[in-house]
Computed example of a mutant assay.
Amino acid sequence: MKENLTPTIRNCARAVIVRDGAILLLCKQSPSYGTRYALPGGAQEEYETLQAALVRECHEEIGTTVTVCDLIHVADFFKPRSTDPETKRHTVEFLFTCVVPDDYAPTNGPAPDKNQKDVFWLPLDELETAPLSPEGLRRVLSASVRQHPFYLGRIT
């Protein structure tokens, strides 16, 4: 195994948590990108399964243990980074349906992302106009698409 490997592609696991007609999202704010909503989750660490990464990231960001269910989508994403000059990071996003405990109330976890301001339930009928990041999530999260796993290719 090659030591000190710096991957050019980063795997990220994201949680799609839907309950009572709403989806659990992070609210992020930054001077560069304004207010945007994102799925909980994040990067896979060395020797970690995608499911273990998702459990760890959700505990850090939303303060609870999730039950990871089905892989529903895989997509490439070129994430803009706040660098000078601006760069992008190539990530492969793995979206899993997940379940939170019945008594879960949205809250920031013990180690939220640096731009994370809040965790909340967004009614599914408001997805169409929500400031999602990445924007391509709208297509992924639509009720008709959510039913079948597939590789999306690049999302913007």
Rank of each mutant, 00 (worst) to 15 (best):
E3D: 14
E3F: 11
E3R: 15
T6K: 14
P7Y: 06
C12V: 10
A13P: 00
R14C: 07
R14Q: 12
R14Y: 13
V16T: 02
G21R: 06
L24H: 01
L25P: 10
L25S: 04
L26Q: 14
C27P: 00
Y33R: 15
A38L: 03
G42Y: 00
G42T: 02
A43L: 11
Q44I: 08
Q44K: 08
Y47E: 13
Q51L: 03
R56A: 02
C58R: 04
C58V: 02
H59L: 10
E61I: 02
G63R: 01
T64Y: 03
T64W: 06
V66T: 08
T67C: 01
D70E: 15
D70F: 02
H73W: 09
D76H: 09
F77M: 05
F78I: 07
K79W: 11
K79T: 13
R81S: 09
D84S: 07
D84H: 06
D84C: 02
E86S: 14
E86K: 08
T87F: 05
H90E: 05
T91H: 09
V92F: 03
F94E: 02
T97I: 04
C98Q: 06
C98L: 01
C98H: 00
P101I: 04
D102Q: 13
A105E: 15
P106I: 02
P110V: 00
P112V: 09
D113F: 12
N115G: 10
N115M: 10
K117S: 11
K117E: 13
K117D: 09
V119T: 05
D125R: 08
L127Y: 08
L127N: 03
L127W: 05
T129Y: 13
T129S: 15
P131Y: 11
L132S: 05
S133R: 13
E135G: 11
R138T: 06
R139H: 15
L141H: 12
A143L: 15
